[in-house]
Amino acid sequence: MSFRRRLSILAAGLTLAWLGVAAADAQDTLLNVSYDPTRELYVDFNQAFAKKWQSETGKKLTVKQSHGGSGKQARSVIDGLDADVVTLALGYDIDAIADSGLLAKDWQARLPNNSSPYTSTIVFLVRKGNPKAIKDWNDLVKPGVSVITPNPKTSGGARWNYLAAWAYALDKNGNDEAKAKEFVGQLFKNVPVLDSGARGATVTFTQRELGDVLLAWENEAYLSLQEFGADKFEIVVPSLSILAEPPVAVVDTVVDRKGTRKVAEAYLQFLYTREGQEIAAKNFYRPRSPELASQYAGRFANVKLVTIDQTFGGWRPTQEKHFADGGVFDQIYQKGR
């Protein structure tokens, strides 16, 4: 192996890499940085939107996708992942991006419904026949029940899980915060492992067969039934849950630099159209449009839902109090260990 040959290989490699990068840049592309369970949703949605975009403008569009725990994804965008749009699990994660100056602080007022084109809630996924007889949140704190949920520090779904449990405890104990803290602490004592994202937790429960119950996004739970068959798992709807509003936003600095604002905005607005809402509903997200909501009403359980704004006073104070370093979650999780 001569040195000269090595050099030519190196040169060839560099050229190849350069060509690869150049080719990727030459296309009209959007990057959608999203949270974990939306993979299937955006595969369908991107296809529909690219078709519409091409018929309206004649331009070919590629939508690139990145998925992961919502908090982790927000972190990547803050660190420079060039997302044209973010579609994350909860408002605070986009607030965090706004705090770093990448998009306007009033982002949530720019689109209808708190910029959340679809909603979801938290339900339980149990093994067929429900062997541990899990009916409601209070069954999760019983000794011997193993609960699977991802890590609230990195996962948006896990934060909704945690807050739904908290809201249930408040409701049962006449809004006694200390009792709620004790209840959620008890619950997390039954959690053997914390995955970083919702999909990881689902795989832990369904594939590695750990735990008796998975706290899951409604859409994620239905998807598991669809993937693995209703003969393996059952969905249990608790007496009370939380209205999860996964918001979407255009990242101002990125689209202005890349010149993609128009297509990025059209992309998010398409989520609110009849077609977009229908794709969401088909992927088990609750549509906002009243028309489609009634059309797909049979898909979604009728459950009492509290909201983050009414019960917890919005995401910023909630994040600060529960999930910041040394917050309530850190206190109860360390005590539980």
């Binding site: 660190d79 420079g80 770093s100």
Partner: peptide, 26 residues
């Protein structure tokens, strides 16, 4: 490398202004 080349890192803001993407790219 995230600390070095990330947007909130040492060289990140400069590289971004020059249009050079290091992390989250090849």
């Amino acid at each position: 490398y995230v600390l070095l080349f990330g947007l909130s890192g040492l060289l990140g803001p400069y590289l971004k202004s020059e249009g050079i993407q290091i992390i989250f790219a090849v």
